[in-house]
């Protein structure tokens, strides 16, 4: 059982327990953030790089963190921004068209050593990769992390109504893709 965020922030703000508090924050949130990132970038090495950058940014910015927002929301926001900028860079370097990018994502999934086209989990991953990037982000946060729309709007800086509509469209598309298999 992890200490509360308030307790962790208090540890971090005291110089003698700063590193202890930071380590505890990492331990508490590392898995959630890792999976949030990996669902978007697919490959472990990329997810690991981004996660490291996220926590380095957290270390640098935690002192100025305003406690009126939730630590959990703030961490997701940093992780999301880092992931999106990584994907943006990847797109620029690849200079591929949108359809080529989608093929590239599909190839990445299929290249996984444990890929099994008969497994529902893999089918779902292939279906999710067919969604536009923003919709994919919303779907992942809602479906896998059960994030409330109110918090998601803080993470993605988008209105709750727009997020609900986005999830609705994404869920419908995925249902259609899965039933067509």
């Amino acid at each position: 059982m992890f200490p509360s965020d308030k307790e962790l922030l208090s540890q971090f703000s005291t110089s003698s327990t700063k590193e202890k508090g930071f380590t505890a924050i990492i331990q508490k949130y590392q898995e959630k953030l890792y999976w949030h990132i990996r669902r978007m970038v697919i490959e472990h090495a990329d997810a690991d790089d981004i996660l490291q950058n996220v926590f380095i940014k957290v270390w640098k910015g935690l002192e100025s963190f305003r406690e009126d927002s939730q630590l959990y929301t703030w961490l997701y926001r940093i992780a999301t921004n880092e992931t999106l900028s990584f994907l943006e860079k990847q797109k620029r370097h690849a200079t591929l068209s949108m359809s080529d990018m989608e093929d590239s994502w599909e190839n990445k999934i299929k290249a996984d050593a444990h890929f099994d086209s008969n497994q529902l989990e893999w089918k779902l991953q292939l279906a999710i990769k067919q969604l536009p990037e923003r919709q994919r982000l919303v779907f992942n946060l809602r479906y896998f992390d059960a994030m409330p729309y109110e918090e998601m709007s803080k993470v993605l800086d988008t209105s709750e109504g727009s997020l609900k509509a986005s999830y609705h469209h994404a869920a419908k598309k995925i249902e259609a893709i899965l039933t067509s298999y």
């Binding site: 990996r38 472990h44 779902l124 991953q125 609705h168 869920a171």
Partner: peptide, 24 residues
């Protein structure tokens, strides 16, 4: 919206290197 989603397993099929989180 899409009842099929409630029937799907949520476990991620991707593999994480052994002890990755412990050694992170």
């Amino acid at each position: 919206i899409a009842p099929i989603l409630n029937t799907l397993p949520k476990a991620m099929p991707y593999i994480v290197p052994a002890n990755y989180f412990e050694q992170l």
